[in-house]
Structure formats: structure tokens, C-alpha cells
Design a protein around this nucleic acid. Structure first.
Ligand code: MN
Ligand code: MN
Ligand code: ZN
Ligand code: ZN
Lengths: 169, 169
DNA sequence: ACTACCATTAGACAAAGTCCAGATCCTGCA
DNA sequence: TGCAGGATCTGGACTTTGTCTAATGGTAGT
């Protein structure tokens, strides 16, 4: 079992448009160790891609990852980014969020938690696992095994002449 | 308020590959009334598209709807199907399921309920709303209003040499 | 018949993601 | 050091889903 933990970091901050988290100084060595712990050979490209995700600790699309990785100078091609993200998923180094109709978001946090998704801005916000309880999950369709539960609370910005939000939902 | 209810029908049946529901004899008049109740002018194309969904009571992709509608002879173009589904969504005649990485599914059932999604077969199965309770939903991000909650339980077929499923998740 | 407005349509287009064949990078071994 | 073999990376063509636009068709009122 890999026992490496995230080092402590600051909490999420809103800049008025995009939710994000302050980048944490995760070294390439940290990342390489994490890759090895998941049975992934730590190549330069893989380290850069993983580093982009783990440093930001944000929900990023493939396109954003490609851009982040190649910001200074070319590090990885589009094909490699897609191949690598798929590999990371298989090895459960990261998690996939199907929440936007046009693109997938990748979540470096694989511990159980849920999400707010603003359907207008596209903003994704974490909901800690213990913030909501799911009572009594139903019997699965015959011949299937559960892989995981995704809870997505879709929100929208309350616009101009909007009534103040009621108690719930 | 529109008070039309689904007429009673048989329960879901598995044919070993695709989950479906027996088609219910919904007349075009029924469908037209439903459209009107949602403020939608019942044109021929709209009636056919809504009919395809309400008759099958299944989770269909745009492509499947296009094919279903044009099975006998051309009824509606691709553009019209997409335009119409978007209109139906706005008027909350149907619901959209973001669950597959490549396409959207449309759900003729807008009453609150949840879904199993088999990540291998792509099969979608309903979970009645009362089959699971969601305790204590967290405070929304500031400046947002909740639109709805989606709970998706991802499953996979238990393959050849698979251990029998444990108690839960 | 004319007008105005909405609805429908073909086909060009855009974006996300996949695929493949060739190039490159390792690593172990002669 | 030199080389073979496998793993990895890459450009670019391709596929799929969905959007957009400009033109056409339908309908209701005058
Ligand atoms: Mn570099
Ligand atoms: Mn017809
Ligand atoms: Zn998350
Ligand atoms: Zn459903």
C-alpha cells in the first residue's frame, strides 16, 4: 500500500470567477514516488502531468492540463496527455468527473468526496465526504458490482432580480 | 399546472443487454397535450420526438432519438432533434443525464430519482427517489442556488473470475 | 396575396478525444 | 561502448457529438 499523504496546504480561495487552491510546493520527487507507488514508471512527461494536477489540487480538463504542462516550453503532446490521463485513471492515481457535457475533468483527489457544479460558470467545488450522508443504497442491478458513487449538486449563480435562496434545494 | 400522469405500465425488463421498458401506448394527442402544458407549440416534429421518448420511457441519446424518430420515414433532421431537445430541457419536459463521457442521455422522467450507470455496457437504470436518502446537504457556494442533485452509482459487470459482491459499495 | 414570425433543414463548422505509424528514449547485455 | 528490444512519445489524420448559419417552409392575420 502506498501511504504517502498530501502535505498540509491552505484552503480554497475564491477569486470571483474560478475556484482554485493555492499551489502547494510538491516536488517532482514527491510526484515520482507517487507514480511508482501506483505502479507507473515516472517518465518526464508523466511527472509533469501529475505535477500539474497535484500542485494545483484543482479539477482540470485535459486541455487545461496540456496548457499548464506546456506553459513554459513544450513538455508533452496532446496524445501523451490523453494517454497518460487514461493510465493514471486505470491505476487510480486520479479520478474522472463526468459533469460537463463537453469535457471531462480530472480530480487529483481520489478520496471519497462529492461536488458542486455550477452549470453556468462551469465551476467545480468539493463537498467533503462527511458533509452529507447517503442512507441505504439500493440493491445493484443483478450481475454488477459498484465502482463508486458520484453525487453532483448542480447550482447556478443567483442572477440579478433573483429571490434570495430558500432553505434547501 | 399540468396534471397529466404517466399511465400505468409494466416494469422494467432485462433482455440481457439493454435495460428497457415496454412501450406504452401513448397517443400523439397525449403528447401534444403534454407539450402544450409546458408551453411548447406541438409541431409534427416535436410530437414525434416527444413521442419517441415518452413511449419508450427510456434514457436515450440524441442519436438514438434521431434514429427512432426516422425509423419508418424521415420525420426530423438532426438540427431539429438537437434544437427540440434543448427546448424540451428549457421547458423542463425532460431531463438531461451527464453520465457518459461522450454523449448526453435524455430522460423523459423529470420526477426526482437517481441512476445506476454501468461504465462498461453504458446501461442506465433508474433508482427510485425513496430508495436512498441524502442526509444534510451542505451549504451552497456563496451566490449560487441549487438546481438539482444527481446521484450516479457507477457499476461494472462482475466479470469471469470475479469475487462475489460483498455487502455494499 | 402579402407580411411577419416561428420552425425546420442541409451542410459547414467546432471541439474533444482516439488512433496509428514512425521516431525516441531507455535498459540490459555483449 | 555498441546494440537490440521494449516502452514511451509524437504529429497529424480521423471520428464523434454537438453547434451554427443562411435559406426555406409553414401558418395566421389582414
Ligand atoms: Mn521540463
Ligand atoms: Mn409522420
Ligand atoms: Zn474533487
Ligand atoms: Zn431516469
Amino acid at each position: 500500500m502506498h501511504s504517502m499523504e498530501f502535505q498540509s496546504g491552505f484552503q480554497s480561495i475564491t477569486d470571483g470567477r474560478r475556484e482554485h487552491v493555492d499551489p502547494v510546493p510538491v516536488t517532482r520527487e514527491d510526484v515520482a514516488a507517487r507514480l511508482r507507488a501506483h505502479g507507473i514508471a515516472p517518465t518526464h512527461q508523466r511527472i509533469e502531468i501529475a505535477h500539474a494536477l497535484f500542485e494545483r489540487r484543482a479539477h482540470l480538463s485535459a486541455d487545461q492540463i496540456l496548457a499548464a504542462v506546456n506553459a513554459r516550453h513544450p513538455e508533452a503532446s496532446k496524445a501523451t496527455v490523453y494517454n497518460t490521463l487514461k493510465l493514471f485513471l486505470e491505476r487510480k492515481l486520479i479520478r474522472e468527473l463526468i459533469v460537463d457535457p463537453v469535457k471531462i475533468f480530472y480530480d487529483p483527489n481520489t478520496t471519497p468526496h462529492h461536488h458542486f457544479y455550477d452549470v453556468v460558470t462551469g465551476e467545480l467545488t468539493d463537498i467533503p465526504a462527511d458533509a452529507l450522508r447517503i442512507e441505504g443504497l439500493p440493491s445493484l442491478p443483478p450481475g454488477t458490482v459498484a465502482e463508486g458513487i458520484d453525487v453532483i449538486i448542480r447550482t447556478r449563480p443567483l442572477g440579478a432580480g433573483e429571490p434570495p435562496p430558500g432553505p434547501a434545494l
